[in-house]
Design a protein around this nucleic acid. Structure first.
Lengths: 196, 196
DNA sequence: TATGATAATGGACACTATGTTCGGAATTTT
DNA sequence: AAAATTCCGAACATAGTGTCCATTATCATA
């Protein structure tokens, strides 16, 4: 069978991915140059371009691989254990634990707020706005106000994005109703069997 | 009184902000160079650097101004009309309408997904995961599944971020409880007087 | 293990952008 | 009108990009 990838190519790719991870943890993604990466990986620059078009391509291909691995893993689990019946948040517990274990990695990937300058600023503005309007009466301290504010702002931006990208035809009022419904009452009204 | 800014400086700044907006709408933020901006604004390059350290600084200062304007505006409204009593989402209706009117602007600001490559990929992975686990029984078609998925993923990432940035001491299980509570039941349990 | 195929190397090159400096010109302030 | 400030534009040093190519190293396989 000759349809395997040349070992050299495989090694090169692995070295590059490895170097990318190392450097991202150290300096963050934005700050990296292709130069940095090939230096860290100890790979020729022209070789890099023989495999990827740039650092973004490299990063994407890494996630691509991860995605396929996860897909298989999940299928396996799904086949073995019984599907957690009707829990739309079944993933959360495991994911939070995973995130805790690999906190550094998650931070660099998600907290990579370098790129989206505009979105960050908008988040700030909206946060101020929401914080100001939020009733003092937040029922004890079950939930940190801070957290609630972020939740609301995040949901708002998600809604805005979905609206623009998927259903630009909807009216503002229609979108507003959906937003408020989801944020105020959550998912439970949408799920059949009441829990608890 | 000598504490006004030189007119020339003011003009320069205005021209630069104007040029930035124009170009962002045309090509997006990431694709812009300082060169592009000063060309569009018809301003000398060295002059640019006399005012800002780079395009990010320029963008930030724009938002800075906007933020202060909004703050005043909101204070004014707040003083005049009665505060909308205890509605933690009081801002939403007006904001959605505003967004509809200036859709192009919002798109370029928020949809600027060029920057956060990693976060985008993570969103994709999580979306697949959530979509797969979401019960078929989504109670009619009151809410597009699509939208619900994005909502869940967004809330998850928000939670993760808040956890890491603000309360890294919490246990995964504790965070999970908060996440599930907010996403499943929404804000209403937190607000005193029941609505409807 | 010889050999043809494939990949890696490293240096050269053209290009684009960055950020700084400075003298002279233009405009504003007083 | 003089003094102060800002703008201009060109020059410069630096850094990174992406491509090309001749040479060398490694691999697949018969």
């Amino acid at each position: 069978m000759a349809r395997e990838i040349d070992r050299r190519a495989a090694r090169t790719r692995k070295a590059l991915h490895q170097a990318l991870m190392t450097l991202m943890l150290r300096k963050g993604y934005e700050a990296l140059s292709v130069q940095d990466i090939v230096d860290e990986a100890d790979i020729g620059r022209s070789t890099f371009y023989a495999h990827y078009t740039g650092k973004e391509d490299l990063l994407r291909s890494g996630f691509q691989m991860l995605r396929e691995e996860l897909k298989e893993a999940q299928s396996a689990v799904r086949a073995a254990a019984g599907t957690s019946h009707d829990d739309p948040l079944g993933f959360s517990t495991a994911m939070f634990e995973h995130a805790a274990r690999y906190a550094d990695h998650y931070r660099t990937m998600i907290g990579a707020r370098d790129g989206a300058v505009a979105e960050n600023e908008i988040r700030l503005i909206l946060s101020e706005m929401v914080r100001r309007e939020m009733p003092r009466t937040l029922h004890g301290d079950r939930m940190p106000r801070d957290f609630v504010v972020q939740f609301i702002v995040g949901a708002f931006l998600t809604t805005l994005n979905w609206w623009f990208e998927r259903k630009p035809g909807l009216l503002p009022s229609e979108v507003d109703v959906m937003f408020r419904s989801l944020v105020l009452d959550g998912l439970s009204p949408l799920v059949d069997d009441r829990h608890r």
